[in-house]
Computed example of a mutant assay.
Amino acid sequence: MKVIESENFTAERAWGALDVCVMNGISCRLHWTDKPYKWHVNDGEEVFAVMHGEVKMHVRRDGREETLMLKAGDIVHAQAGDEHYAEPVGEARILVIEQEGSV
């Protein structure tokens, strides 16, 4: 058993990650970032949990863009094919659970 103090995790670069575990082909990774990611579509489903900080989640649906403001404790479930990108407000720590090797 291991305990990870997510609030204290940092990385050398934006979106650097700590691999928490891989279970049956599903990866669980803790990310640290202070910069936005890029627009992307995941191959499969993704769970995105903000552990520390605030994150603007930009989503494109039916040709429209919307922004969801996420705070620590908020969880997003993205379906395969959902186009999105995350933009932290300052520093953020995010737990991402997705198919191993996903974008």
Rank of each mutant, 00 (worst) to 15 (best):
R60N: 10
L18P: 04
I94C: 04
G25H: 04
E91L: 08
A17M: 05
E12I: 05
R60A: 08
H77A: 11
V20H: 09
E83Y: 02
M51A: 11
I75Y: 00
P88T: 00
V55C: 10
H84T: 07
V50W: 02
T33S: 15
A49Q: 15
S102K: 04
G16W: 01
E98M: 07
D74Y: 03
R61T: 13
T33V: 11
W32A: 07
Q99N: 15
Y37P: 00
L70R: 00
N24E: 11
F9A: 09
T67M: 12
I94E: 01
A80S: 15
S6Q: 05
V20Y: 12
I4V: 15
L30M: 06
Q99F: 10
K38N: 11
A49W: 12
G63T: 13
I75H: 00
H77D: 09
D74L: 00
P36H: 07
R61G: 11
W15Y: 09
D82L: 14
Y37F: 08
N8E: 12
Q99L: 14
K35G: 12
R64Q: 13
L68I: 14
M51K: 13
A49L: 15
V96G: 06
A80Y: 08
L70E: 03
V41Q: 10
I97T: 15
E91Y: 10
V76W: 03
I75M: 12
G90H: 03
Q99E: 15
S102L: 04
R29P: 01
E54R: 14
R13A: 14
K56T: 05
L95M: 13
V22A: 12
K56D: 14
K38S: 10
M23A: 14
E83L: 00
V59Y: 14
T10R: 10
T67S: 07
D62F: 10
E87V: 02
E98Q: 13
A86R: 02
G90T: 04
K35I: 09
E83T: 03
F48W: 03
A92S: 15
E98F: 06
S6G: 09
H58Q: 05
R64M: 11
H58L: 05
D62M: 09
A17E: 01
G81E: 04
W39D: 01
H77R: 14
L30N: 02
R60F: 09
S27K: 11
G81S: 08
V89M: 10
K35M: 13
P88W: 01
H52W: 05
V3R: 14
W32P: 03
F48I: 00
V41I: 15
A11F: 02
E100N: 12
E98Y: 03
A86C: 05
Y37E: 04
V22C: 11
G81T: 04
G73P: 04
R93F: 01
V47N: 04
E12M: 09
C28W: 13
M1E: 05
A72R: 05
R64K: 14
D19K: 12
V3G: 10
H77F: 15
H52F: 06
A92D: 01
I94D: 05
G16D: 03
H77S: 12
D19A: 10
H77M: 11
A11H: 07
G90F: 02
